[in-house]
């Protein structure tokens, strides 16, 4: 798994982690699908375990599962792949 961007939102509550993920998707769309295809969101807000996978289903992204944070720190790493499949409203 090649994470091209880590977004560290540990210590921040809902809706911040999902907003940051959505911003990353907006940037990826703007940049012409070239970079940052797989992103990891580091979060320790318990709501992220439901809301990041649900957001992916709603926004046409692919939730690839969770990993331990690469810095060995607290929280969970949520791996999301942006794809060019249709965006749902």
């Amino acid at each position: 798994m090649n994470v091209s961007l880590w977004i560290d939102e540990r210590g921040r509550r809902c809706p911040i982690p999902v907003i940051s993920l959505a911003r990353a998707q907006t940037m990826w769309l703007r940049d012409g699908f070239s970079t940052q295809e797989v992103v990891g969101v580091l979060a320790d807000d318990p709501a992220a375990q439901y809301d990041i996978p649900a957001w992916c289903r709603l926004k046409g992204a692919e939730f690839q599962g969770t990993v331990a944070p690469p810095d060995g720190g607290p929280g969970t790493g949520y791996i999301v792949r942006f794809s060019t499949s249709r965006q749902e409203d």
Binding site: C14, P15, A47, Y50, D51, P53, A54, W55
Partner: peptide, 10 residues
């Protein structure tokens, strides 16, 4: 919401 895979924020 968790059990149906729904979005819990907002």
């Amino acid at each position: 919401l968790a059990a149906i895979g729904g979005f819990t924020g907002g």
